[in-house]
Simulated scan of single mutants.
Amino acid sequence: MSTHPMFSKPHYAAQTLGDQLTGLEGLVDVAAAFPDLPSGVLYVSYVYPDRVMVQLHALAEVEAWRTALDVAADQVCIDQRGYDVSLEFTVSRSGGEFLVWATQAVASLAVSECMPN
């Protein structure tokens, strides 16, 4: 009896923990080089094993990461939806890619600008 394709295990880029090593090593490299950066929610997915996603608590923390990782200010995406403002950037580092962002409620800031990479 064969298994219906809908119920078979999906194919992801990472099948093992070792497949996620590039993202994990990149995270260790950044932590060693910049131990005083604000902490955040850190995520290395089996879908994108070379990408480290860093969700920070406050917009100012995004600026600290941007400065440390030497990302130009014009590479930061700024978006506002209602009272929520988000800052986000991506950068390649240590063989992987970092996606760093935060969303914060701000009373009256009217900004919506995304800079192309």
Rank of each mutant, 00 (worst) to 15 (best):
R81T: 13
L21N: 06
T16K: 11
T90H: 08
V44G: 01
L109A: 14
V106A: 13
I78W: 14
A110F: 00
D79T: 12
D84S: 10
T22Q: 06
P38N: 01
P35D: 01
A31W: 08
V44I: 12
V111N: 00
H57T: 14
L17N: 13
P49Y: 03
G23Q: 03
A72L: 05
P5A: 10
E25S: 09
A33W: 01
P116E: 13
G82L: 09
V106R: 14
P5M: 13
D36W: 04
V62D: 01
L99G: 09
D84R: 12
T90A: 10
S92L: 14
A72E: 09
A33G: 01
D70M: 06
L109P: 03
E25C: 11
A14V: 07
D29R: 09
A60Y: 00
L87Y: 07
V52I: 09
T22D: 04
L99E: 09
P5Q: 11
K9P: 03
V76G: 01
D79I: 02
F89E: 11
L21S: 10
G26N: 03
C114P: 03
D74N: 15
E61W: 01
P49K: 06
L37M: 09
T67H: 02
V91M: 06
C114Y: 05
D29P: 00
P10V: 04
A102C: 05
M115T: 11
Y12T: 13
S2M: 02
R93F: 06
L21H: 09
P10S: 13
A64H: 12
D84H: 13
D36C: 09
G82K: 03
A31I: 00
A33H: 02
C114H: 09
A107F: 02
L21Q: 15
G23W: 04
G23H: 04
V54D: 01
G40L: 07
L17T: 07
Y46N: 15
S112I: 12
D36T: 10
G23Y: 05
R51M: 10
D19M: 10
V28M: 15
S8R: 15
L59S: 07
S92I: 12
H4K: 08
A64I: 06
A60Q: 06
S94D: 10
C77D: 08
